[in-house]
Simulated assay, not measured.
Amino acid sequence: MNPRRFEELTREESLRRLGSVSVGRIVFTHQALPAVRPVNHLVDNGAIVLRTHPGAALLSAVDSVVAYEADAISEDDHIGWSVVITGVARRLRGASEIERYERLLRPWVPDEMEYVIRIHPELVTGFSLIEDNEALPHGAAP
């Protein structure tokens, strides 16, 4: 196995990578307990946008601090990245914004997704696990 190292990502690179995938996990409090749900998302102007349906546990996260995580990690060599953002989940209510996100963000489940939630990232942490070619002995091929 080749040597590896963690590399911290900038805020901009973290958000770019988050925007390169369509599914992540939201972490929130539901009935006083931690809850995690996989959801599809988009990154728009630096914010994470989700859609959900009436009755979803995720609605208990509105106006609360949440974490959102997405990653892309190879099953073969475990090379990849992970990004975690923390911020307050807000429900959007403006008709034009809701219509815009209904066009841009297609649900991956067949429910009626009439609620749009935006998370403005206050904290952004991203790491990439990469091959460390500099750690190889001189002249060795990766």
Rank of each mutant, 00 (worst) to 15 (best):
I117K: 02
R5A: 07
I119F: 03
V65L: 04
E122C: 07
S22L: 12
R103W: 04
R91D: 05
L15M: 15
D76E: 13
E134K: 08
D132G: 07
A67Y: 03
V27M: 11
V49A: 11
S14Y: 05
E134F: 13
R16S: 12
V49K: 12
G126R: 08
V23T: 13
A61M: 06
H78N: 08
L33S: 11
V21L: 12
I119K: 13
I73E: 05
I73N: 06
I79E: 06
R37M: 13
I119N: 10
Q31M: 14
S20C: 13
W81N: 10
G87E: 06
W81D: 07
I79H: 04
E13C: 03
L123R: 15
L129Q: 13
L129W: 05
A67R: 08
F127W: 12
R17P: 03
G46C: 09
E102M: 12
E112M: 01
P54N: 12
I79A: 11
R93Q: 10
M1D: 01
D76R: 05
A70F: 02
P137Y: 03
V21A: 15
G46A: 08
R37L: 15
A95F: 04
G87A: 11
L105E: 14
V39W: 01
P110V: 10
E134Y: 03
L33C: 06
A95K: 10
V83P: 03
N45K: 12
P54M: 13
H120E: 14
H53C: 01
V88A: 02
H41A: 00
Q31I: 12
S74C: 15
L9I: 15
P38Y: 11
H41V: 00
A95H: 02
D111A: 14
V36G: 08
P54L: 11
E8L: 07
T125R: 10
R51K: 14
G126F: 03
G80D: 04
L123P: 04
A70H: 07
V43A: 11
L50D: 02
I130N: 02
A72T: 05
N45F: 01
V43G: 13
V39H: 03
E112Y: 14
R16D: 12
L9S: 14
R5E: 07
L92Q: 10
E131Y: 06
A57I: 00
V116N: 08
V36S: 04
L58E: 00
I48N: 05
L59A: 11
L42Q: 10
V83K: 11
H120K: 10
A61W: 00
